[in-house]
Simulated assay, not measured.
Amino acid sequence: MVNLLTDRDFWVNYWTSKKGLSFRIPENYLFHKELEEIIDREKIKTAIELGGFPGYYAVFLRKYFKLDVTLLDYFIHPPVTDDLLETNALQAGDIHVIEADLFNHQERGKYDMVLSCGLIEHFNDTGDIIKKHVEFLKPGGTLFITLPNFRALNGWFQRKFDRENYEKHNIHCMDPELLASICKQEGLTVKEARYFGHFSLWLEQEKEKPVAVRLFKKATWIAGKVLTKIIPFNSKALSPYILIEAKKEL
């Protein structure tokens, strides 16, 4: 079985089709509270973002926490990353950028924190890709992984209205208990393994979808936001993300 559900051509086409990739990353960027807590508690000094081009979290961690940050992805388009840095009042050398295949790169055991946001669900073998994350961790380091929850209502939208994109994701891995068990098998202590976020919906290239689909999506989004504003809760059925935090013992 081929482990990777996408290839380099997919990501080249994906990113080159995107507009507005550079923006000022806000202090309250998604997962900011969780990351700030980890950085303060664990005294994080170094971090690597895996599969993170253009480098939003690498830039976020450098900009607001002054970490020594590395971005590693097997597709890097330097003008985009350079523009993102400049937009956020950073310079080209402020983050280390590595264009390499995660499975062949030999740099291991260097970082206080290893994070990826939206990476592991593009692989068939979830255990293998998490193992690669762990190999970058120092003893005592923290693993922080987030991924979309396509077992929620958002996943139904993906499957119904963007089947091609849906099939680029490993739906089976979108299970906090499964991910926690894999982390434990790798010798990590699991701190968090849970659904994250009260409600959200999105579609790739939404502007290209039929008007009826966009209106239906907007109406559902409003209804879900109202419901979870009145009764805020995280759940398998509605939460748009899954979050895993685990620690490699000394």
Rank of each mutant, 00 (worst) to 15 (best):
Y111I: 09
Y74L: 05
I98Y: 01
F60P: 02
P26C: 08
K19S: 14
P79H: 14
R108L: 12
E37L: 13
N28P: 01
Y57I: 05
Y111A: 06
V80G: 02
F123A: 06
I44E: 01
R24H: 11
V59E: 04
F103T: 09
V69M: 11
E86C: 02
F60Q: 02
W11H: 10
F53T: 08
N124K: 12
E42N: 11
I38T: 03
K18R: 15
E37I: 02
I120Y: 09
K19N: 12
N28D: 15
W11D: 05
R108P: 00
E37W: 08
E49M: 14
F75E: 04
K63V: 02
L35W: 08
D112S: 13
G51V: 14
E121F: 11
N28G: 07
A100W: 10
N124A: 09
R62D: 04
F75R: 09
F65G: 09
A89W: 13
N13G: 12
D101S: 07
I39D: 02
E99L: 09
N13Y: 07
S22N: 11
E121Y: 10
A92G: 01
I38C: 07
I120S: 04
D101C: 03
A100I: 10
K18A: 04
V59R: 11
Y64T: 06
S22P: 01
T87M: 09
F53W: 06
E107P: 00
G55Q: 05
D68N: 14
M113F: 10
S17M: 07
L67D: 05
W11N: 13
R41P: 00
Y56G: 02
D40W: 05
E49V: 14
K19W: 06
K43D: 03
I95C: 02
K63C: 03
I98V: 15
T16N: 14
D94T: 12
Y64W: 01
L30A: 08
S17D: 13
A89F: 13
I120L: 08
K33I: 01
V59T: 13
L119N: 02
R62V: 03
K19P: 00
G20P: 00
L30M: 09
N104P: 00
F23T: 07
I120P: 01
T126D: 00
L67A: 12
L72K: 11
H96A: 08
